[in-house]
Amino acid sequence: MSLLSRIQQWLNPASAIPVQWQDIKIKELPLIGIDLELTSLDISTSNITSIGWVKGQGNCLDLASCHYSVICTTESLNQSPVIHGLTAETIALGEDVKDALQMLIQEAHNHVWVLHNVTLDMGVLFRLIRQFGLTMPPVVTIDTLKLAVYQLQKQHQMMPPNSATLTVCRQRHDLPLAPAHNALDDAVATLELLFAQLYQLDAKGQITLADLMHSGAINVHQLNS
């Protein structure tokens, strides 16, 4: 990235958003809700056990677009089988992580990614993408966790503990209980949560990504930076 564009981005963070998405309303953006299930919460060592995603746009998600990959890994599963319900046998039958990543990278060109806790999931993704020597175009993410924190902080000074987990966030918006910790279910749950959050922020659906930059929930990720 050139120095000039770095300065531009620092002065105006919204300028990093790809041109085709700069001036359109969030409700018109092609979205993809993504969730990764990981073997640990440590970005430098964690591995992916499964990936799920679902596509949507304008307060509507299409279950026909659901994707779910279980990743074949030889790594230790640590505590995660208990949490994700994936046993070593299932994982041994799963896909190669590189294939799964390549499929996901396809979605970076034409979708804004919606995740709950972008820092963790994108950290692991980027580490693995570099590790496999893959390339990826800049990807725009919306973090429902950061959005929740932003909305909570607008209301309270203090954040109650556990107030930003996916399940608690959904409860706050009166969304139905969803089985947590399955990558596809969490991906669907995350995108549903975004719809409810956006409704609370802007019932008429007029805002753009740039209007939400100040919440800290919008990020543009560049592989080479």
Partner: peptide, 20 residues
């Protein structure tokens, strides 16, 4: 389930969504 769309239906978007 695979032939289902899930919508977040509000007073503001109902017209658009229900038409779609």
């Amino acid at each position: 389930a695979q032939h289902t769309r899930v919508i977040y239906l509000t007073e503001e978007n109902k017209q658009e969504l229900l038409a779609e």
